[in-house]
Design a protein around this nucleic acid. Structure first.
Lengths: 138, 138
DNA sequence: CGATAATACGATTATTTTAGTCGCATTTTA
DNA sequence: TAAAATGCGACTAAAATAATCGTATTATCG
């Protein structure tokens, strides 16, 4: 509950790892070995991050992944959205406007939850990969 | 992902309902009918909230539930903790101190995530049932 | 050119968590 | 003493998450 999925958790660790390698390419194998993360599982997340423009990949023999931009420009929010799609505290806060729930008129949850959601999102938007590796101040 | 469970969602709605009934007892049946929530499922949550001191119950025929204290003294955080037990963004932020994960020395996730967790918790601690029914300001 | 080391990607399976149900016991009141 | 309620444990169902498998494609190096 209110837990980050392994997909996101692994991805953040991997991004830190890649970030620390700096200019060289990091291979999925190398990352999964170092961090003891299932290779196939990690690979798919890296591929997703690539498609979303967070990572760049190089195919073939000396290939691998590198950050598409500076780690202080990559927020956790982006990583979450990339890997999970948009999500909300309650279903109705991320439903498209046309699929309204049938209790919409009387529901006392949607608006206040949307507010809380925004506050939480803003925490994730403010936190970058670079910050995580350094200290995060409270 | 980062979604409130139905248990918590229903419980919050139920607490709002009970709060609006004021001094009278609200029965689980009444609540589940009004809010269209599965009766048995809701009942268990209400019983848990009772054991945790958020609700008071009266057994027998004219029985039911009422708030154990004013709705502005009941935070969402309490409801979440009551129903889910403590939870964290990543496993290690809620593991007991003795069951440390084997990557503890090199892990770059635990401390920063604990910080984010605290920020999120503080949002939930600041939000009461009374506030939800009124407006929640951003 | 061909072997090898890498990513790309869809399909499938396994595991865990969440949601919901059932049955029966107990309590209280009218 | 019947009826209306909560209390509680065991069970089942469904959904989400995590992990695996198989195979195709791409690029480099010798």
């Amino acid at each position: 509950m209110l837990r980050l999925s392994k997909k996101v958790e692994y991805a953040i660790l991997a991004l830190q790892f890649i970030s620390n390698k700096d200019d060289k390419f990091a291979t999925a194998k190398e990352i999964s070995d170092s961090l003891e993360i299932p290779f196939e599982f990690l690979s798919k997340s890296l591929q997703t991050l690539m498609k979303k423009g967070i990572l760049e990949s190089q195919l073939g023999v000396r290939g691998g992944y590198q950050l598409a931009r500076s780690p202080n420009k990559i927020t956790i929010q982006e990583v979450i959205v990339a890997l999970e799609g948009r999500s909300g505290l309650v279903d109705c806060t991320y439903k498209k406007s046309n699929e309204t729930c049938d209790k919409i008129e009387t529901c006392l949850l949607k608006n206040p939850m949307a507010v809380l959601q925004n506050r939480i999102n803003s925490i994730f938007k403010q936190t970058t990969i670079a910050q995580l590796s350094g200290e995060v101040k409270n």
